[in-house]
Structure formats: structure tokens, C-alpha cells
Design a protein around this nucleic acid. Structure first.
Length: 592
RNA sequence: GGAGCAGUAGUUCAACUGGUUAGAGCACCGGCCUGUCACGCCGGAAGUUGCGGGUUCGAGUCCCGUCUGCCCCGCCA
């Protein structure tokens, strides 16, 4: 190329007036008026309008006429002020333009399948197939820039707080518990497999044993589970571990980190410390272990009300030890039957047996279960929830966690539908005192709610075997706008306690030794007390970008079936590759 | 594993209750145009209605299967 760039578009400003310079970039758009041609040249940094006047040499004008979208070009020209009437306030260089003196077409482009300057002209499906074009859009550039800023802010903050960034292996041993592993066959050790890490959990604990008392890593994690708008097969964590700390230390550090990232990436200020709720409080008040506290709309206890009513469902629920809870929806009396049905079905999808309702009018209760509710009961409910005519009530009568979870989902849907969520708000909170264990009815055993290395609360240690379901963990989640963006815990660092934990999880001593022997051994050589946290980095930047899909913050994401429409992954491999790995495929057809 | 929605021109969408030659915007191609910036005006080309099967005189439309995309439940220590 003979016209090598001297400037990027963001540098074009008044100080360059009259100066001749060269820009390289893509043809964003062309407006050919016949005797005069305008083009917008785009590079990573922005747009600049270039004008081709009719006194240019013929060969240059012909080239300019021939330009089409996304051609890669080099333009030499002089920076001029635009006439007053021709100023474009929509772009930052809108008061200026480049009067072209030379043009080089570095590479012609085919017509793109969608317009780069108007991203909505392509569906997500199409944009993923041509992701390298999608990444040219302002939206994706902005998202990846925000992500980059957040990553750099993370490193700056943690490095400034004496954390060391240490890499851990991607090829590791498959371990039980948790998500399904991605397996990688070992050629050199035929028949054996590595697993990709679900997180560097054990490695970072071993680094604590090694004495690296403040470790972090921006690290890819892999989980072979079904995808969602906020979940990918591979995702990035800010993984942090610290020695000689308790919960407060990790939380304080995390608050500082989040505040720093938010400031660097968005310019917004965050107030610290963040509010805290115990898991039980969060469930009771918001029906979620990751409540969205950007809006009010609390859940109320309605057991007493249920007793006063004559609604059979409520009474039988209470008799079998279940609970009755209610949401008061301001203005909800205007809901149509169809709308109410939709909330009912939402509650059912999320496990509730149903959703009882009742509208409050000037004349008292109406519709739904109103005929089972006497004046006295209604009055008490109105008093308790500060309800007014025009409101409506949604009730669940169910097992505590199931019912509250379902009502929490209804609450979230209402928050959205009623526009209760302030835009641009950032509402963080800590959720603490999670139960250590959770009974898995499928496997008929307890599983760790967080992970098996999480320390139980020390004042409950003696109840570990006798009342395992009631013991709380030294775990904490950081929630932002209804998303879990980080989770961590103070870890077990003593061999005995770790072995007790494995036994509780029905992992036999032999299995524990086979799977986690290296960790148990390490604990015998002077393991310091330690704890940490891991941030879901993609999810965090998704929230900061105001997006509701994690794919918007990942350069090359997978679709919900785990495929990459661009490169066609996953794909079959050659027989030769399989032979080398000593792998033979089972034919699926016979199954059906 | 389950539920819902969608798949029609390069693209974004339309096409009534099954009925004429499947339409429109944008993009594209050709022409005109000296201050446009979603430039404008005139003209043109453009279709395996995701794929396979079925019902019917007749299927984009109905039925069955299948694939893909999105959203959700399960799952995600």
C-alpha cells in the first residue's frame, strides 16, 4: 500500500485544520450525488466524512464512483471545516471533513449479508455466522471495549493490592461433584482423559498452601451444561483467593474491586459497603437467592391471613407444613384475566401448584379467591400490606423454598411488566449464610450447595453429622441487579474437616483419596486458613453494558445448542484422529 | 430430558378461513443528480417458502417427523 495511515479517525479535530493526512479504514457508506461524492470512512475509532470534489483527476473519481460498502480503502486528504449547514451533529467529527486528494482501494469487499452501519438489518443467527462482520458494528465494538476496560481495571486493581496473577492448567483431572466436565482424550495415555476446569478451585487452594497469599486470575472455565442467555459453555471468571482472611476481608476486597471496575468501565460511582441479606431473608422477602433489589415489591407472610380465610387449599397447605405468601401488586386490579393466567402459568412453570389471586376494589375483595375471604381477614391483609383499592394480591401456598421461588419469579416478571426497574441503576447486595448442603432427591444424598471445599460455620460443626441440612456455610454471593455475579467462601483447610465433608456428601474415603488425595495431602503440610471468590466476568460486563445476553459481550460465542455457526464447531473428526486416540464411536441409529 | 415461539428474495418482514402469477422496505444492479450524511429520483434483477414425508382437486398455510435459532424449566459444586 502506498497510502499508509498517518492518523486514526478519532484524532481528527480542529487542530488539524488545513493539514494533509492519510486515513485507512472501511467504507461505511457512500452518498454519490453525481458531481460530488461523500463517503464515510470507518475505522475502529469512529467515522469521518470524506468528500470527493469533481476537480479530482478522472482515475480517482472513477475509483470513488466504484466504491461499495465495506471496501478497505486508503484516503489522502486535507482536513476542512464543513459549511455551517452541512454539520452532522451525530458523529464526533461532524464539524469537519476530509477533502480527498488521493484514493487507494486496498481490498474490494463483497456485499455484506447485513449492513454494518445498521446492525438491526441482520438477525442474531446471521450475525453469528458472520461474526467478524458483526464485530465491526458500533454496538459490538462498544461492548468489547467495555469488556477490555473491565479486564484491565481488574488487573490494575488487584495488582495494586499486591495480588499475583498465576495461570493454572486447562488440562486437569476430572473430579466428581458439580457440573458435567468437558473431557479431552490423552493420546499419550490412551484410554485416559483430561478434564477442562469448571473452575481452578483446587489449584488456587494449593497456591494458598504454597504461600501465594493473594492470587488472582482472569481465567476461562468450562461447564458442559445447557446454555442460557446468561450462560455459555466456556466463560471467564475473575478468580481470587486470599490467605489469613475471613468473610469480611474477601467481601471488602470484592467491593473495592467491583467499584473500581464499574468506575473504569462505565464512569459510574458505587457506594460501599454493599447491603447484606441472609439467604433466608432474601428468600422470604424476594423469593430468590439472587434478588433484584432495584425495585421494591416485597413478599409478605400470609399464614395468618390464610387461617382466617375459608379457602381449603390454604388450610390444607398449612396443615401439611407448607406456607402461604403474598405479593401486593399496586394497580394490579386492572390486570385482565389473561394477564393473571400468564402469571399463574409462570408460577407453575417454576414449580408452584398454582397462583391464587384477589383484586381489591372500593367495594372490597373481588374475583379469584374473594368468596373465601371475609371482611375481617381482608382488613388484616390490607393493613399488613398497606394495600389500596386498585391493587391486587397474588398468593402461593406451597413448600417454603418452592413456593417462594415461584413467587419470586412472578415478582421479577411484575417488576419488568410494571416498569418498576429504574434504568441504569446498579443494585448490588451480598447474600450470606447459605445452607451448606442440599438434599438431592435424585441421587438420594446431600450435595454441596456451593462446593465441597466450603467451610461450614464453625459454631455449627458439632451439628454437621446430626443436623446436616441446618448447618450454614461460610459462603457468600454477590448479586447485582438480580444476577449472581460472584460467589465465594471461606474454605476448609484442615484434612479432618475436609474428610468429614466428603463423608457427608457420601464420597467414600477411597474415592476421596483417589479424586482429591493431592488436596488432602497438601492440607497436611501447613495449609493456611484461606478463602476467596470468583466473579462471572462475562455476566458482570453484560450488566454493565445494559445487555440481557452474554453473547453480546463475547467475541465468538456459541448458540444455545453449543454450536458456532461461523466455523461449524463442534464437528466430526477423521477416523485417523480417533484411531490415534484409541476412541471408537458408538452408532446412535440403532437406539431408535 | 421437557415446554413455548420462530424459520418465506441477499436481508427484515407480509401473504385472511387451504385457492389467481408468493408481495413490500432495505440491500444489490443500471441510469440521473454538486452539500449529502438512513441522500434523492427513475428503472431492473432477485424465491428449493429450513429439510423429509403425508392429507387434499389444490399446501407458504393443515398433519407427522426432523434440523436450526431464540426464550424458559430441569441442569449449571
Amino acid at each position: 500500500m502506498k497510502l499508509k495511515r498517518t492518523h486514526t479517525t478519532d484524532l481528527i479535530n480542529d487542530s488539524l485544520l488545513g493539514q494533509e493526512l492519510i486515513l485507512n479504514g472501511w467504507l461505511n457508506s457512500r452518498r454519490d450525488l453525481g458531481g460530488i461524492i461523500f463517503i464515510d470512512l470507518r475505522d475502529r475509532y469512529g467515522l469521518v466524512q470524506v468528500r470527493f470534489a469533481d476537480d479530482l483527476p478522472k482515475n480517482i473519481l472513477e475509483k470513488a464512483h466504484r466504491l461499495s460498502a465495506e471496501d478497505v480503502i486508503a484516503v489522502k486528504g486535507t482536513v476542512l471545516a464543513r459549511p455551517e449547514a452541512a454539520v452532522n451533529p451525530k458523529i464526533s467529527s461532524g464539524k469537519l471533513e476530509l477533502l480527498a486528494s488521493d484514493l487507494e482501494i486496498l481490498n474490494k469487499a463483497k456485499t455484506p449479508p447485513f449492513e454494518i452501519s445498521r446492525r438491526e438489518t441482520g438477525s442474531e443467527d446471521l450475525r453469528l455466522k458472520y461474526r467478524y462482520l458483526d464485530l465491526r458494528t458500533t454496538e459490538m465494538k462498544r461492548n468489547l471495549e467495555l469488556r477490555s476496560k473491565a479486564a484491565i481495571a481488574t488487573r490494575n486493581f488487584l495488582s495494586g493490592n499486591r495480588f499475583m496473577e498465576i495461570e493454572t492448567p486447562f488440562l486437569m483431572k476430572s473430579t466428581p461433584e458439580g457440573a458435567r466436565d468437558f473431557l479431552v482424550p490423552s493420546r499419550i495415555n490412551a484410554g485416559k482423559f483430561y478434564a477442562l476446569p469448571q473452575s481452578p478451585q483446587t489449584y488456587k487452594q494449593l497456591l494458598m498452601v504454597s504461600g501465594f497469599d493473594r492470587y488472582f486470575q482472569l481465567v476461562k472455565c468450562f461447564r458442559d451444561e445447557d446454555l442460557r442467555a446468561d450462560r455459555q459453555l466456556e466463560f471467564t471468571q475473575i478468580d481470587i483467593e486470599m490467605s489469613f482472611v475471613d468473610e469480611a476481608d474477601v467481601q471488602e476486597l470484592s467491593e473495592g474491586l467491583l467499584k473500581h471496575i464499574v468506575k473504569a468501565a462505565t464512569g459510574k460511582a458505587m457506594e460501599i459497603p454493599f447491603p447484606k441479606l441472609t439467604w433466608e431473608e432474601a428468600m422470604e422477602k424476594y423469593g430468590s437467592d439472587k434478588p433484584d433489589i432495584r425495585f421494591d415489591l416485597p413478599i409478605h407472610k400470609a399464614d395468618d391471613f390464610a387461617k382466617m380465610s375459608s379457602f381449603g387449599v390454604f388450610h390444607s397447605a398449612l396443615e401439611s407444613g407448607n406456607v402461604v405468601r403474598v405479593l401486593k401488586v399496586s394497580g394490579g386490579a386492572s390486570f385482565s384475566r389473561k394477564q393473571i393466567d400468564e402469571y399463574t402459568s409462570l408460577a407453575k412453570i417454576n414449580g408452584a401448584k398454582g397462583l391464587a389471586w384477589l383484586k381489591l376494589t372500593e367495594n372490597g375483595g373481588e374475583g379469584g379467591i374473594s368468596k373465601f375471604v371475609n371482611d375481617e381477614a381482608l382488613k388484616a391483609l390490607i393493613h399488613q400490606t398497606k394495600a389500596e383499592p386498585g391493587d391486587c394480591f397474588f398468593f402461593i401456598a406451597d413448600e417454603w423454598e418452592t413456593g417462594l421461588t415461584a413467587l419470586g419469579m412472578v415478582r421479577n416478571a411484575l417488576g419488568k411488566a410494571l416498569n418498576l426497574i429504574p434504568e441504569d441503576a446498579l443494585a448490588p447486595l451480598w447474600v450470606t449464610e447459605f445452607p451448606l448442603l442440599e438434599f438431592d432427591p435424585e441421587e438420594q444424598r446431600y450435595v454441596a450447595r456451593h462446593h465441597p471445599f466450603t467451610s461450614p460455620r464453625l459454631d455449627e460443626l458439632e451439628r454437621l453429622e446430626t443436623h446436616p441440612a441446618e448447618v450454614k456455610a461460610r459462603a457468600y454471593d454477590l448479586v447485582l441487579n438480580g444476577y449472581e455475579i460472584a460467589g465465594g467462601s471461606i474454605r476448609i483447610f484442615q484434612k479432618d474437616l475436609q474428610q468429614r465433608m466428603f463423608r457427608l456428601l457420601n464420597i467414600g474415603d477411597d474415592e476421596a483419596r483417589a479424586k482429591f488425595g493431592f488436596l488432602l495431602d497438601a492440607f497436611e503440610y501447613g495449609a493456611p486458613p484461606h478463602g476467596g471468590i470468583a466473579f462471572g466476568f462475562d455476566r458482570l460486563v453484560m450488566i454493565l453494558a445494559g445487555s440481557d445476553s452474554i453473547r453480546e459481550l463475547i467475541a465468538f460465542p456459541k448458540t444455545t445448542t453449543g454450536q458456532s455457526p461461523m466455523d461449524g464447531a463442534p464437528d466430526t473428526v477423521s477416523q485417523k484422529q480417533l484411531d490415534e486416540l484409541k476412541i471408537s464411536l458408538i452408532r446412535e441409529k440403532a437406539a431408535k
